[in-house]
Amino acid sequence: MQIVLDETHDLIAAEKVDGTKVYDASGEKMGTVKSLMINKQTGQVAHAILSIGGFLGMGEDYHTVPWEKLDYDTELGGYKLDVSEEKLKSAPTFSAEEVTALNDREFEHRVYHHFGTPPYFI
């Protein structure tokens, strides 16, 4: 027997978060959650990878955003991002071809410094 539970009152499966819309403070759609990155040691979500722009999966930019910058909004059915669009656009970014940036600790330092949050790996 297979048990399928992807959401409780306080918890949600990571696979259900993927594809969830992300909005700015005024409720305008900015992009979607592409993936969650979870710390192997603590089990805590470290950051989300957001897909911004593009059309039908082409020309997208990917932004790594500290998880604490996202708040779920039940009315919107998505996450509100606690930064301005300008702040997001000026953040370190990568394309699908540059996904190896996620293996670069210096890239992660730049992301967390940009958003003014302590890195998850301290």
Rank of each mutant, 00 (worst) to 15 (best):
Q2V: 13
I3E: 12
I3G: 10
V4C: 11
D6S: 14
T8H: 06
T8N: 08
H9S: 12
H9L: 14
L11P: 04
A13N: 10
A13Y: 03
A13R: 12
A14Q: 13
A14W: 11
A14E: 15
A14M: 07
A14V: 14
E15S: 14
E15T: 13
V17Y: 05
V17F: 04
D18T: 15
D18L: 10
G19Y: 08
T20V: 15
T20Y: 03
K21F: 00
V22L: 02
Y23Q: 03
Y23F: 15
D24V: 08
D24H: 00
S26Q: 11
G27L: 04
G27C: 06
G27V: 08
E28W: 06
K29T: 15
K29C: 04
K29I: 12
M30A: 06
G31Q: 02
V33I: 15
K34P: 06
L36Y: 10
L36V: 13
L36W: 09
M37K: 14
I38V: 15
I38Y: 01
K40M: 06
Q41K: 15
T42N: 13
G43I: 11
G43H: 12
Q44I: 10
V45Q: 05
A46F: 07
A46N: 10
H47E: 05
H47Q: 09
A48Q: 03
I49H: 00
G53C: 07
G54W: 05
F55T: 10
L56N: 10
L56C: 10
L56S: 12
G59P: 06
E60T: 15
E60N: 08
E60R: 07
D61H: 13
Y62I: 07
Y62C: 00
Y62S: 00
H63R: 11
T64C: 00
V65I: 14
P66M: 13
W67I: 08
E68A: 04
D71N: 09
T74I: 15
E75T: 07
E75V: 02
G77T: 14
G78I: 08
G78Y: 06
Y79V: 00
L81D: 00
L81I: 05
D82L: 08
S84H: 09
S84T: 15
S84Q: 10
S84W: 09
K87D: 07
L88S: 00
L88H: 01
L88G: 01
K89Y: 06
S90W: 04
S90H: 11
A91M: 01
A91D: 01
P92C: 09
T93R: 14
T93A: 13
T93N: 11
F94A: 07
F94R: 01
F94L: 09
S95E: 02
S95N: 09
S95C: 07
A96H: 04
A96G: 03
A96E: 05
E97L: 09
E97R: 03
E98G: 05
E98Y: 04
V99G: 05
T100G: 13
T100W: 02
T100I: 07
A101F: 06
A101K: 00
A101C: 11
A101V: 03
L102R: 02
N103V: 03
D104Y: 01
D104H: 08
D104N: 15
D104G: 08
F107T: 05
E108S: 06
H109P: 08
R110A: 12
V111C: 04
Y112F: 15
Y112Q: 07
H113A: 14
H114L: 05
H114G: 01
F115Q: 02
G116M: 07
P118K: 09
Y120A: 10
F121Y: 15
